[in-house]
Amino acid sequence: MARPSRKPVRREHLVAAATRAVGRQGLATLRVADVAEQAGVVRGSVHYYFPDLSELLREVFRQAVERFCTDRAAMLSTMDDAREKLVAAARAGIPWRADDELVTVLYEFTTAVRQDPIYSVIAESLFDRQVTMYGAVLEIGRAQGHFQPRSPVADIAANLVCLENGYGLEIIAGNAVMPPQRAFELILSYARDATGCADLTGDPAGSEVTHLRPRKGTR
């Protein structure tokens, strides 16, 4: 019986290594040698599984988006009350540390969309999926009687995503006047105004509960 191919496992190992490399030094100066160092292999091994570095980086971005969206959706699926869902979604959507690897990687790629049209397509998917997520939460809240949207649901959802993105970028950049808790509170302030629901509040203690952390084996 033929042995199962190890190629998918080794490719995933390189994707994880490239993710760490992007998170630690950014895209601008990234080289194949940096990925090889993170993976503990020679450069030839990287080229063997990913002949083109851009192919590897596209896979890094695609998987980062999938992790972010899928993990957040899974977390929200455990909650019934739309108010709890919205607060948890907002909390999980911003980085609680400036060195948050997953969010740093997402920002690196979404700010480099002009370099590669495929980055642009993936970034649009990320935005659309987040808007859809918030839109679903808002509709659930309206059905439950908690939310009375002051604007079209799609507009509120898009604004929430843009607030996340903008504040998240300030946190990643180390802006001292925009710590994570302040960003979280500002997002919820908008959410309260947009939904007419005063119950959308959060506290620092809850931030660790719903923060999306890297999966085991990704560091």
Rank of each mutant, 00 (worst) to 15 (best):
P179E: 05
A191Y: 05
E185V: 04
I187R: 06
G44L: 12
L30P: 01
G166E: 04
R11H: 00
P95A: 06
N165I: 08
E59F: 10
E12C: 02
V131E: 11
C197I: 09
L102W: 11
E139D: 13
R6P: 00
T78C: 01
P4F: 12
Y134A: 06
A74S: 01
V161P: 03
V209C: 04
D203T: 11
S77V: 00
L163P: 10
E164S: 04
A16C: 10
G23S: 14
V42H: 15
V177F: 02
A157K: 12
E37W: 09
F109E: 11
R129T: 11
V177S: 08
L186F: 10
A194D: 11
L76Q: 05
L76M: 02
P149Y: 11
I171Q: 04
K216C: 05
G93H: 11
C162I: 13
L212M: 11
K216S: 04
I118L: 12
R114K: 07
L186Y: 11
V22F: 02
P179R: 03
D80K: 10
E208N: 09
R72P: 00
L57N: 04
L106M: 12
R72T: 04
V105T: 14
D155F: 08
K7Q: 07
R83Q: 15
I118A: 05
V32F: 01
I187G: 03
T78R: 13
L106W: 05
Y190M: 12
R3H: 02
V60K: 14
S207P: 00
G168Q: 06
R91L: 12
V65Q: 07
R62M: 07
Q115Y: 01
A21K: 03
L138R: 06
I140V: 13
Q38M: 08
D81F: 05
I118F: 14
E170P: 00
